[in-house]
Design a protein around this nucleic acid. Structure first.
Length: 675
DNA sequence: GAGTTTGAAACT
DNA sequence: CAGTTTCAAACTC
């Protein structure tokens, strides 16, 4: 420590003085306080601190936060850089003091972080607790934040001076570091306590993460420093939750296979060490690599959990946001690859987290009849441990029969499977099998239930009429259970039957297929009307929909949605499939099959045209540019089933939906295990 | 807990 | 692609 400090001592003073002397510096100093006040990034200081030396294990999670911090810093840097732009020429001169000037630069980040860490310890040990604590307090203490924030504008320099003075008294290097910290602190601290509060939350959380994360590996060093924080005690509790949330250490064998690569080694080691130790597996390594972005785990993650449509909704939203990116590194931003990976990881984590907590509740609510059984079976391995427990005897847990395997998770101890190969040890086998299955059916590991982002259906009416926005991707095929038992996957998932279902005598409590169809018809009509009204300029549609004037059906509550977001409404219809961005090839076939089946079975649905006719149109249709990541849900355009009488008009109008669909078909990256 | 039922998955 | 078989969960007793 001493050596490093001395080193810094030597390095810092000179450039600093130079820099300070420069008029530009003065200018910047004057500006910085203002900027800093707004910048949220206070966190950064701690983030950087916290992630100073994360153990490799936490790479991904840390990375995310680290990046976050960077991101925030970037804001700062951006702001500051504006002022500093003129300094570019002088950068070199300043270069020596880059630690101060370019605090926000990524290149110096880690260094900086280390410095900050040292700084903390420095302040703690070498110098009077004051400085180090000040920083911490300012960052963490909201109460003190406001007043200081006011001072910030003018106090950045003051603080620094003070710190410098203190640092000089004790250890110049430290002082400088502290001064830096002070600078950061100052210009990061928000003016208003409110913002600061948020900030504090962030800080605390990040810090907590840091604490937890670091403590794991650097207990000696860090704990020493961290305790200095007044908030430490508070942080601890939430800390872990946050940690668990953001850290790859998902409760279990969650599906963050992205991290797998990083963890692979660990897994292997663990396997060797603790084959029987499923806890370890479950905690972090039971992820089956290559799973379709673990999304499949959403609906299937556990029996006990099943689908919580509401929650899944939120989860799905997250997915929509992050998944596309995560899966598209190839598609677009190579630059962002790292970020994407992170995003993906986060997405997976987020999903896992989200689904894990609430689902049980919902499921219980929804499936009271089976509650007892579930209770008996699941035995609540722990909330976080929403694990599947398969009981496979012959499949070796390498087929979709196995729920664990299907969900993309490794089997764990609670499983009663025999001759199980779905273990980290047999990762290769698992992956190979997965590939094989995926080659057969690219959507095999896709979520079985996908929630439609726009819950129009829900809003439109009561539950009976409006099945939950979530739908089973493929639909069920129940013959005898009437979709009232868990034999029915729709029911099991807590979602209503949809057009995709080929069930007989559907009485799904979550939504009957018929109701779904009716709703679709309604929405279609409304959509048509609205379209006509708004898109009267479109000759094509006008021509195709001579009957368009007919649809006078009262427009329901969600009409506006239809109007404003036509494609969303489309999504609603074929809610699910695309959600994951199924491979174009993959989903089509199923669609066709399903459609065909439906046509055969359901006169209602049988519209003269179907995929065969639709597809060309779709392909020919160009324009839709607005396809969102969400749109994938609408993989299958089913609405054709609207009243046959209206089929003509409907068809004509469906162009939108079709376009949407096509566009929405993203490559299904996640299916490829080895991305 | 054993046996039956059920429907998805896998196979032919 | 349709029909059959296999499988494991769900369910019943």
């Amino acid at each position: 420590m001493d050596s490093s400090q001395k080193k810094k001592k030597i390095e810092t003073p000179t450039p600093k003085s130079k820099f300070e002397d420069s008029p530009v510096f003065n200018f910047i100093n004057n500006l910085s306080p203002i900027e800093t006040v707004r910048s949220i990034p206070t966190v950064q200081t701690f983030n950087s601190l916290s992630f100073t030396s994360p153990p490799p294990v936490f790479t991904s999670p840390h990375a995310s936060f680290h990046r976050e911090s960077r991101f925030f810093r970037c804001h700062n840097s951006v702001e500051r850089s504006k002022a500093l732009e003129s300094l570019d020429s002088t950068q070199e001169v300043v270069g020596g003091a880059s630690g101060e000037v370019d605090l926000n630069k990524d290149a110096t980040l880690e260094e900086e972080e280390e410095e900050e860490e040292e700084e903390t310890s420095c302040g703690h040990v070498d110098s009077p607790p004051g400085p180090g604590d000040i920083v911490t307090q300012v960052l963490l203490d909201p109460s003190g934040g406001a007043p200081r924030g006011e001072d910030n504008a003018s106090s950045s320099e003051d603080v620094r001076k003070i710190l410098d003075a203190q640092g000089e008294n004790d250890t110049p290097g430290c002082g400088r570091l502290m001064a830096d910290a002070a600078e950061l602190l100052v210009f990061r601290s928000p003016n208003d306590s409110e913002a600061f509060g948020c900030l504090v939350d962030k800080i605390s959380s990040s810090e907590r993460r840091f604490c937890a994360g670091v403590k794991l590996t650097k207990q000696n060093d860090i704990t020493k420093d961290v305790p200095a924080n007044d908030n430490e005690p508070l942080a601890l509790v939430p800390n872990q939750s946050v940690l668990s949330l953001h850290r790859g250490s998902m409760r279990r064998r969650c599906l963050d296979f992205e991290v797998l690569g990083k963890r692979k080694k660990d897994i292997a080691d663990d396997d060797k060490q603790t084959l029987g130790d499923n806890k370890a597996e479950s905690s972090s390594k039971c992820v089956v690599p290559g799973i379709g972005l673990h999304l499949n785990a959403i609906p299937m993650s556990s029996k006990a959990i099943k689908i919580n449509t509401r929650h899944e909704g939120s989860a799905s939203v997250e997915v929509q946001k992050s998944f596309p990116g995560s899966i598209t590194p190839v598609h677009s931003q190579d630059i962002m690859q790292e970020t994407l990976v992170q995003a993906e990881t986060e997405a997976g984590e987020g999903l896992a987290v989200e689904e894990e907590t609430p689902k049980p509740l919902v499921f219980e609510e929804l499936n009271q009849d089976s509650f007892q059984k579930k209770k008996r079976k699941v035995e609540e391995p722990g909330e976080g441990d929403s694990c599947k427990r398969c009981n496979c005897k012959k499949s070796k847990c390498l087929k979709l029969y196995c729920e664990c395997f299907a969900a993309g998770v490794y089997c764990i101890e609670p499983c009663s499977c025999v001759d199980c190969f779905n273990r980290p040890i047999h990762e290769d086998t698992v992956l190979a099998t997965r590939k094989q299955i995926e080659s057969r059916n690219p959507l095999a590991f896709a979520p079985k239930v996908i929630r439609n982002s726009d819950s129009i259906m829900e809003t439109s009416d009561d539950a009976s009429k409006t099945p939950a926005s979530a739908r089973h991707k493929r639909g069920c095929n129940c013959k005898k259970s009437n979709c009232l038992k868990k034999y029915c996957e729709c029911f099991q998932s807590g979602v209503g039957c949809s057009i995709n279902c080929r069930c007989e005598g559907c009485k799904n409590a979550f939504g009957k297929k018929e109701a779904y169809l009716l709703a679709i018809m309604e929405s279609k009509q409304e959509e048509d009307v609205s379209k006509i009204q708004q898109n009267s300029d479109l000759p094509k549609e006008v021509e195709q929909n001579p009957s368009s004037d007919q649809p006078s059906t009262p427009l329901p509550p969600y009409r506006h949605m239809v109007v404003h977001q036509p494609f969303l409404s489309k999504n609603r219809l074929p809610p699910t499939q695309f959600f994951l961005g199924a491979g174009s090839s993959s989903f089509r076939k199923p669609d066709r099959d399903l459609t065909q089946a439906r046509i055969d079975k359901k006169p209602l649905e049988t519209v003269a045209q179907d995929k065969t006719e639709i597809m060309p149109e779709i392909l020919s249709d160009t324009p839709i540019t607005t396809v969102k990541a969400i749109s994938p849900n609408s993989k299958r355009v089913s609405p054709p089933h609207i009243g046959s009488s209206e089929s003509g008009s409907i068809l004509g109008k469906r162009t939108n939906g079709r376009k949407l669909i096509l566009r929405s078909i993203p490559a299904f990256p996640s299916l490829n295990p080895n991305q």
